[in-house]
Simulated scan of single mutants.
Amino acid sequence: MANCHEMKPGDIYYCEKCGLELKVEKSCSCSPGGGDSCTVPLSCCGQEMTKK
C-alpha cells in the first residue's frame, strides 16, 4: 500500500495497469492517524500503485 507518510524523496511508484510512474520529490509532512493526515493510498486505474 502506497501511503504518503511512508514515501521518501527518490521513491518511484507505478501503475501495473497503464504504466504511469510517479517520482517522489518531497516527503509528505502529515502524521499518520492525525487530523491532518492523507486519507487514501496512492492509486491509478482503480488500483493501488506499487513502489519500484
Rank of each mutant, 00 (worst) to 15 (best):
K51N: 01
N3P: 00
S27T: 05
P41T: 09
V24E: 07
K51R: 15
T39W: 01
V40G: 08
G46Y: 03
C15P: 04
C18G: 08
G10C: 07
G10D: 10
G33C: 07
S27A: 15
A2V: 13
Q47W: 03
C44P: 06
A2G: 10
G33T: 03
C30M: 03
C28W: 03
E48F: 06
I12F: 04
V40A: 13
P9H: 04
M1H: 06
L22I: 15
P9K: 05
L20K: 13
K51D: 01
K52A: 15
T39R: 13
P32V: 02
E21M: 11
K52Q: 15
G19W: 02
Y14C: 02
T39P: 00
N3M: 13
C45W: 00
M1A: 11
G35H: 08
S31L: 11
L22Q: 14
T50V: 13
Y13A: 08
S29I: 13
S31F: 01
C44N: 07
T39H: 08
K23N: 05
D11M: 04
S29Q: 15
E21P: 00
S29R: 14
G33E: 07
N3E: 10
K23Y: 04
S31G: 11
G46K: 00
M1F: 04
P9A: 06
G33W: 01
E16A: 15
G46H: 03
G33Q: 06
E6R: 08
I12L: 10
E21D: 05
Y13R: 01
M1K: 06
H5V: 05
L42S: 09
P9W: 04
G46F: 04
C4V: 02
K8A: 14
T50C: 07
E25F: 10
P9F: 07
Q47S: 10
C45Q: 04
K17A: 09
G35A: 12
E6T: 12
E48Y: 01
C44K: 02
G46E: 03
T50A: 13
P41E: 07
C44S: 11
K51W: 00
L20E: 14
S27Q: 12
L22D: 07
E16P: 01
G46C: 06
C30N: 03
C45H: 03
G46Q: 02
